[in-house]
Nucleic acid binder design. Structure first.
Lengths: 193, 193
DNA sequence: AGATGACTAGAACGAACGCTCTATCCAGTA
DNA sequence: TACTGGATAGAGCGTTCGTTCTAGTCATCT
């Protein structure tokens, strides 16, 4: 099975859930919206995800985690200078944000924030994503010669600032916060050399 | 009217809406939750807010706007040195976050992110909040002698970083991101002097 | 005393929610 | 050909949603 269709039903469901929850959050995304968007029936959704909406959300956040991690790794590996990498990363985020009509922000936070209290599994999935991203940035800085503790702290601020700037950009419908974030993170990183 | 009760019904409703939407988002907050939390009946809610849930959300975001603006102004005015003010601000946010059991993040973003697309009025209210906060930080920096354009850019990153760090702290249940944000924003601000 | 208007109270509406259920389809195997 | 089990299909469950509506309370003013 599988293989007959270009993308399997299960993958289509996860992808649709991720995209919808990125835009409308956990509570704002209905299972019928998901099945429609994924071109699958409700029966299929519950066949693949017997845990229902919560299991679906955890899976979708994992998908968003991998998505952003790939973008992050791609940019960080492409640039030789870590400071230049900050600017390149901000620019990449700005382009994606503008091209989506200010719709697609962080694929994790929107769903995670509102359910952090009520659904521990969702919060934990989001935490895994943040830890993953932090590790990617930290390792990149260490590889560039930064001391371990400096790199660890810096990586926290890099992730925080990109997350916050993406949020600001989305709400203000402007790339200015992301542009500023790139410039300032580059300057900050450079100040430790 | 008013005055007989310590806090008027209308204010109790706005306050309850703000707190609930801060924790559960727009879609995750029901009008019955609000009326229960505010100790008011559904009739009272619609009496004061005939526009229903959307009008209520706009009002609640305005409330959160003023709340965070007060905190921001308070800390920035208390500290003489703008770099020290960054650290103090991060510390204040960290204390509030930890004391609420990692429940109370930014009073604006959770509700705004998920409804940015579907409810333009809600997004616009959130945008007003971001513009307001940005202006407070920028003016403070200008008063400390920073050039206007430098202060404007810096203020964007200050708001973005605090927002992102608060989000990270909430999801990771740790003040580490906020501590790092304070340290690095102080260093960044100092680097322009 | 009677009228007024701000405010409270909660029953009830249709729509949408997450989820369950049974029925059906269909490739692979014996 | 008959059987099996993964996958699809969608009607329908009970509940909750935002909202509307009518009735009632209670100071205040004429």
């Amino acid at each position: 099975m599988r293989g007959k269709q270009e993308v399997g039903t299960r993958d289509r469901i996860v992808h649709a859930t991720s995209r919808l929850m990125q835009r409308h959050g956990y509570e704002g995304t209905g299972l019928k919206d998901i099945s429609r968007e994924a071109q699958a029936t409700l029966g299929s959704v519950y066949h693949f995800f017997p845990g229902g909406k919560v299991e679906l959300a955890v899976e979708a956040i994992g998908h968003g985690d991998r998505e952003f991690a790939d973008l992050l790794r791609g940019v960080l590996d492409r640039e030789d200078d870590p400071a230049a990498a900050m600017i390149a990363c901000a620019r990449e985020l700005a382009v994606g944000m503008r091209d989506s009509g200010w719709l697609d922000g962080c694929p994790v936070t929107t769903a995670a924030l509102e359910s952090a209290r009520r659904l521990p599994e969702v919060r934990e999935a989001a935490e895994r994503a943040f830890v993953n991203w932090h590790g990617i940035v930290r390792d990149r800085l260490v590889r560039s010669g930064f001391a371990a503790d400096v790199a660890d702290d810096l990586a926290h601020t890099v992730i925080s600032t990109f997350e916050g700037a993406e949020m600001s950009a989305q709400i203000m419908r402007s790339t200015t916060p992301l542009d500023a974030a790139g410039t300032h993170l580059a300057r900050l990183v450079d100040s430790y050399r």
